[in-house]
Nucleic acid binder design. Structure first.
Lengths: 207, 207
DNA sequence: CCGCCGATCAACCGATCGGTTGATGTGCCG
DNA sequence: CGGCACATCAACCGATCGGTTGATCGGCGG
């Protein structure tokens, strides 16, 4: 099975090469530190699976890189392997066409099985990520709605209520209503605290 | 030269082992995913240099782990190898007794030389980190003062001006004055934007 | 079909924030 | 010694935010 690595850290790429060297059925056909390099390498080497970090060397992030890879004709499976487990990251990666989402803290064996499962086209979720998603499905009351996360991300960028309203094509009154709900769900009472609480709880991630 | 690895990511540890395997003068005598495990391993194997990540497996972070290691009798040199390059991280790590500060994105050769330099007791700074520190020294006007960073960190926790004033034993008026200066230096005009700008510019980092 | 939830909007009020002007003291560097 | 940066405080004003109450509408599930 042909594998392509995309990660901006030389140390991590070396680690993956070393770990996967012991797996005879997995062949690493190329690696890249950034999105452009990855797209060229994938076109040249036609891998079955791409192992993708979310923070990349060049300006393009892993989600956008995933989107572009999946837009290729007969695209490879993309398995995200990254440090973060925010709701926003996971949902965006899956929306961009990722087959699975693993964390770098996972034990090597889980990584191997994940790569093989991805090659078969199966969906793969790291235990921690899966738990987060299950909780999100089981207990939707505590989870923020999609709209509320949108508000939070604009909040994190420092936008005023009026600016948020303008960007989302709603009125300031609606923004305030959403904020009250967000405060309640996060257990805070100011916008700044909401941003840090959301970052801590991995609901959003700062750029 | 005896080296000990501390990093919570199995992939990164494998990568370091693989990369350093080619350097005959460097011998890896042990590794750990967390601070407690590291302290036990260091006591047992007596390395010359400890390669330390800042985000660790257990509750203790790399800065605190560094402090504890440097408090040992005849302690090893501690070389920080991490993803982040915030002012706060670097300054805290150095204050805790770190000999050097390298980034995981650095090329392997720089890492090798850094480890050897650390073993000789020399200070090591990654090029990006060094540049940031130099800028901080050369152009103190653009850098935030220590007091302003304190304000920023409380800001990031969501504290209101009154709360910040109470925690720092100053009046609300003074807090507002500091905020105006901070806004000016960061080029923003709201507290929330100041927090995200500070995080983006690596002046502070969220917990 | 009816209830619940999410999303939308309105009007109001007090509290907080952003911005300005002006002032004082301290410590450092040339 | 004379700046200069930093930290501290005061008073003021308009803008924004936080909180509340109440309302409409569409979709989804029992």
């Amino acid at each position: 099975m042909r594998l392509f690595l995309v990660d901006d850290h030389p140390v991590v790429r070396a680690g993956l090469v070393a770990l996967l060297g012991g797996e005879d059925d997995i062949e690493i056909v190329g690696e890249a530190a950034g999105a452009d390099e990855a797209l060229r390498g994938i076109a040249a080497h036609r891998p079955d699976v791409v192992l993708m970090d979310l923070q990349l060397g060049d300006g393009i992030d892993g989600v956008e890189a995933t989107r572009r890879i999946r837009a290729l004709p007969a695209p490879p499976q993309v398995l995200v392997l990254t440090t973060y487990e925010t709701d926003a990251d996971v949902l965006r990666a899956v929306a961009a066409g990722a087959t699975g989402y693993l964390l770098k803290v996972c034990p090597p064996e889980e990584l191997f099985q994940g790569i093989r499962a991805a090659a078969r086209g199966e969906s793969v979720l790291s235990a921690k990520v899966a738990a987060r998603m299950m909780r999100r499905l089981r207990d939707p009351g505590l989870a923020l709605s999609v709209r509320e996360v949108e508000i939070l991300e604009l909040l994190a960028s420092g936008a005023a209520n009026r600016e948020i309203a303008r960007r989302l094509f709603i009125t300031e009154a609606t923004v305030k209503t959403h904020l009250v709900h967000i405060y309640g769900k996060l257990g805070v009472d100011t916008r700044t605290a909401a941003v840090t609480a959301a970052v801590e709880r991995r609901l959003i991630r700062l750029p």
